[in-house]
Simulated scan of single mutants.
Amino acid sequence: MKNLFYVCILALAIYSCGSGKERNFEQKEQTAMANDTVRIANDSLEYEIIIIEPGFNLFINSIAKPRGYYSQTYLENKNRFLVPEYNARVTQPQRFNPNLYIQEINYNPNIDYGYEVNYMLYNYFVFFSREYNQRFSVPTRI
Rank of each mutant, 00 (worst) to 15 (best):
F128R: 07
R39D: 02
I102S: 08
P54Y: 03
A32Q: 13
V117S: 08
N133S: 07
Y69V: 05
T91L: 12
S137F: 03
Y74D: 10
G55H: 03
F56V: 05
A88R: 05
Y74E: 13
N77C: 08
V83N: 10
K28A: 12
R80E: 13
F56K: 03
Y113M: 05
Q103A: 14
Y47E: 09
N79Q: 14
I63E: 11
N133T: 06
N108R: 08
Y74T: 14
Y115H: 06
Q72V: 13
A41C: 03
Y70S: 03
E85W: 11
E53F: 05
E131M: 12
G68I: 12
Y122I: 04
E46L: 15
V117T: 13
G114I: 07
L58Y: 14
M33A: 15
S137A: 10
I52N: 11
I49Y: 00
P66V: 10
K78L: 14
T73S: 13
Q103N: 15
S137T: 15
S62H: 14
L58W: 09
P66I: 08
L45Q: 14
Y122A: 00
I63V: 15
E29P: 01
R135S: 15
R89H: 10
D43A: 10
E76Y: 00
L45C: 06
I105T: 01
R135G: 01
E48G: 06
F96G: 00
Q30R: 06
E116G: 02
G55K: 00
Y70D: 00
N87E: 04
Y124H: 11
